[in-house]
Design a protein around this nucleic acid. Structure first.
Length: 601
DNA sequence: GTGCTCG
C-alpha cells in the first residue's frame, strides 16, 4: 500500500490533504514504504477492516471543502488546542481519565503515544503530531460508526451524553430524564448531529444548516431534540424560539411526546397545534408569549399565520427543524413545498438556524440546500438511502391482485406474530382490504387521512397497546412513526419508489431490534422491481439474480419521464415587493435574502 | 398516489 493510500484510509471520508500532511507522508514513506510493518504506529491501528468497507462517498471528497473541514475542525477545537499548547500533559491526562471513566474504548495505544510525545521531545512538530493524532482518533470513531460528514467546521463526535453537560451546560435534569428512559449512549446520528447543532450556536452571524441522513429508527428525533433543549437553556417569555415541522399529525404528536418526556421538570413550554382555531387565541398578539417550542404539521401553522392579524409570531424563532425533509420538499400542485416556503419566510428572526432530517435524501433537497444556505454541513450514516440492516426482507410473487388476498390469508392462517403493519397504495384500497379482513376473526383496523382525528388517535393508541394485531395503512404511517416491536411489515401494494420502500419497512426493526418485511409483487410491478431488489440486496438479504438483471427502467417509462418538461420549482418566497421590481429570475435570486428564496437555477 | 388548515 502506498503511503498516500494509507493516509487516505486513515482519513476515512476526508480527502488526504497533501498540503498539510505531505511532509508526514513523505517521512512515512521513507521509513515504511509498504506500510505493512505491524510495529508501525499507523498500521497498528485496528481500523482498516471497517474503513475499507466504508468507502467515502464521491461528493464527500470535494477538494476545497474537505481542506476546510480539516483546517476548520482544528479551529473548532482551538480552545482545547490552546490548553494543549500551554499545559498539554495534564490536559491529555485529564482527557484520558475522563474518557476512561466514561468507559469509551479508545485504543490506549494512541493515548500512550500522545503522552510519550509529551514526555519526550518538546519539539515544535510534536504539537503538529498531536493534532494529527487527535484528528486520526476522530476519523477512526467516525469510520467505526459509519459517520460521513461533509462541510466546514465540523465538531468532533460526541461519545457520551455526559459530555453534553460538561461541554454545553445541558440541564442536569434532562440528562437524568435521558438516563431514566434507558438511553445511555448516543447512536451514530446523535454522536455527530448533536455536537454539530450545538456548535452552530456559537456562531450567530451565519445561517447554518445541517442535513442529517441516516437509517430509519436510529434516533433522529433525539438527535435534534437534545441540542434544541440544550440551546434554549431556560424557559423564556419571548414567544416560540423553536419550531419543528412534521409531515403528519401522528409524527408531530410523537415528537411532541418525546420533547415532553425529555424536558420533564425543566419547565419548557412545549406546544402542539391540535386545533388551529383554538390555537389562534392561544398564540395571538394578545397572548403572554409564555411558550418555547412548537411542534406542528405545516398547514396549521400557515392557517395561523394567515389570520388577520396573524395569530402566530415566529420572528423570535432560533431553530427551525424540518423532520422528514424530503417529504416536505415534495413539489407539485398539492405538494408540501409551498407550505414549507411560507413557514421559512415567517421565521424571520436574525438568529434563525435550520436543520433538516430524514432517513432518505432526494437530490432536490440537497441541491436546494447547497444553493441557498451558507455553511451547509451534511451528516450521513452508512450509505445514503439504504434500508436498515436489522430487517429481514423478502419479495413474494403473488401473480395478480387476487393472489395478494390469497397470500395474505395464507400468512394469517399459518400463524403470524402480531403486531403487523399492512401498507396499501390508496385510501380506497385500505378500506377495501379492511372489509375483506374484518370478518377473519383477527383484530384488524385501518388508518388513513380520511378518518377523523378521533379515529386516527384511537387506532394509533390501540395498535400501540396491542389491541389491534393487524393495522392496514396508507403512506400516513410510512414515515417516522415509532411503534414498539412491529414484527412484520407487509407491503400489500408495491411501494411506488425505493425511498417509499425504505420508509415503510423502517417501521420494523427499529432501535436495533430484529424485524421482518414481506413485499408482494405482481407482473405489473416489474418496472420498479429492480430498484427495490437492489435496496434489499444492499441490506444483505438474498434476492434472485434475475431481478437485478432487469433493465434499469422500462424504456417506455424512461422516455415518458424524459419527455416531461424539466419543471423547476416556481415557488419563490422572496417578498412580493422585490418580485415586482425584478422580473428576471437571476436578478431576484441575487437580491433575495440569502436562504429565503426557493428558486432552482 | 399520499399527506398537509378552518367551518
Amino acid at each position: 500500500m502506498d503511503a498516500f493510500d494509507l493516509f487516505r484510509k486513515l482519513g476515512a471520508g476526508a480527502k488526504f490533504d497533501l498540503k498539510r500532511f505531505g511532509q508526514d507522508a513523505a517521512r512515512f514513506k521513507t521509513h515504511k514504504p509498504k506500510g505493512t510493518d505491524v510495529s508501525d504506529p499507523f498500521s497498528s491501528i485496528d481500523y482498516f477492516g471497517k474503513a475499507s468497507t466504508n468507502k467515502p462517498q464521491e461528493d464527500d471528497c470535494e477538494d476545497g471543502e474537505v481542506l476546510n473541514e480539516s483546517e476548520e475542525s482544528d479551529a473548532g477545537d482551538k480552545r482545547k488546542r490552546k490548553h494543549e499548547q500551554t499545559d498539554v500533559k495534564t490536559n491529555v491526562k485529564k482527557r484520558k481519565k475522563s474518557k476512561v471513566a466514561k468507559g469509551i474504548s479508545w485504543t490506549s495505544d494512541l493515548d500512550k503515544k500522545i503522552l510519550n510525545l509529551q514526555n519526550g521531545d518538546k519539539e515544535k512538530n510534536s504539537l503538529k503530531r498531536l493534532k494529527h493524532l487527535h484528528q486520526e482518533k476522530v476519523n477512526r470513531i467516525r469510520a467505526q460508526h459509519r459517520i460521513n460528514v461533509h462541510g466546514c467546521d465540523v465538531p468532533d463526535p460526541l461519545c457520551t451524553f455526559e459530555e453534553l453537560q460538561s461541554e454545553y451546560r445541558l440541564h442536569s435534569r434532562i440528562l437524568q430524564n435521558l438516563n431514566d428512559a434507558g438511553l445511555d449512549s448516543p447512536t451514530p446520528i446523535q454522536m455527530q448531529a448533536i455536537p454539530l447543532m450545538m456548535h452552530v450556536n456559537k456562531d450567530t452571524s451565519i445561517l447554518t444548516l445541517c442535513l442529517g441522513v441516516c437509517p430509519t429508527g436510529s434516533g433522529k428525533t433525539l438527535a435534534f431534540c437534545l441540542p434544541l433543549l440544550s440551546h434554549l437553556q431556560q424557559p423564556a417569555n419571548l414567544g416560540f424560539r423553536a419550531v419543528i415541522i412534521s409531515p403528519t399529525r401522528e409524527l408531530a404528536t410523537q415528537t411532541y411526546r418525546e420533547l415532553l418526556r425529555l424536558s420533564d421538570g425543566v419547565g419548557f413550554r412545549v406546544h402542539i397545534i391540535d386545533k388551529a382555531s383554538l390555537a389562534a387565541k392561544k398564540y395571538g398578539p394578545q397572548s403572554s408569549k409564555k411558550y418555547d417550542i412548537l411542534v406542528s404539521t405545516p398547514n396549521r401553522v400557515i392557517y395561523l399565520l394567515n389570520q388577520d392579524p396573524p395569530a402566530l409570531d415566529l420572528c423570535s424563532v432560533e431553530w427551525l427543524i424540518v423532520d422528514e425533509s424530503d417529504k416536505l420538499f415534495e413539489e407539485g400542485k398539492t405538494g408540501f413545498r409551498e407550505q414549507l416556503a411560507t413557514i421559512f419566510l415567517a421565521c424571520s428572526g436574525p438568529k434563525v438556524r435550520r436543520a433538516f432530517f430524514s432517513a432518505t435524501c432526494t437530490p432536490d433537497v440537497e441541491q436546494w440546500c447547497r444553493l441557498n444556505l451558507d455553511n451547509l454541513v451534511t451528516v450521513n450514516i452508512g450509505h445514503r438511502n439504504t434500508a436498515v440492516e436489522t430487517v429481514e426482507q423478502e419479495l413474494l410473487f403473488v401473480g395478480n391482485e387476487d393472489g395478494k388476498l390469497v397470500a395474505m390469508r395464507n400468512i394469517i392462517n399459518k400463524g403470524f406474530l402480531p403486531p403487523m403493519l399492512v401498507f396499501v397504495q390508496s385510501i380506497d384500497r385500505a378500506r377495501e382490504l379492511f372489509h375483506e379482513l374484518v370478518y377473519e376473526g383477527i383484530n384488524v383496523d385501518v388508518i388513513h387521512a380520511d378518518r377523523t382525528q378521533q379515529q386516527r388517535d384511537n387506532v394509533v393508541k390501540s395498535f400501540r397497546s396491542g389491541h389491534i394485531w393487524v393495522l392496514i395503512c396508507t403512506a400516513l404511517l410510512a414515515r417516522g412513526i415509532d411503534f414498539k416491536g412491529v414484527n412484520l411489515v407487509l407491503n400489500y401494494d408495491f411501494p411506488t419508489s425505493a425511498v417509499e420502500y425504505i420508509h415503510r419497512i423502517g417501521r420494523t426493526g427499529r432501535a436495533g431490534h430484529h424485524g421482518r418485511a414481506v413485499t408482494f409483487f405482481t407482473e405489473n410491478d416489474k418496472p420498479l422491481l429492480r430498484s427495490i431488489a437492489n435496496v434489499i440486496k444492499q441490506a444483505g438479504c438474498p434476492v434472485p439474480d434475475y431481478m437485478i438483471g432487469f433493465k434499469k427502467i422500462h424504456s417506455k417509462v424512461k422516455r415518458r419521464l424524459e419527455k416531461q418538461p424539466p419543471k423547476r420549482s416556481t415557488i419563490c418566497t422572496t417578498p412580493r415587493f422585490l418580485m415586482k421590481k425584478q422580473k428576471s429570475k437571476q436578478k431576484v435570486k441575487k437580491n433575495a435574502i440569502k436562504g429565503f428564496d426557493f428558486y432552482f437555477v
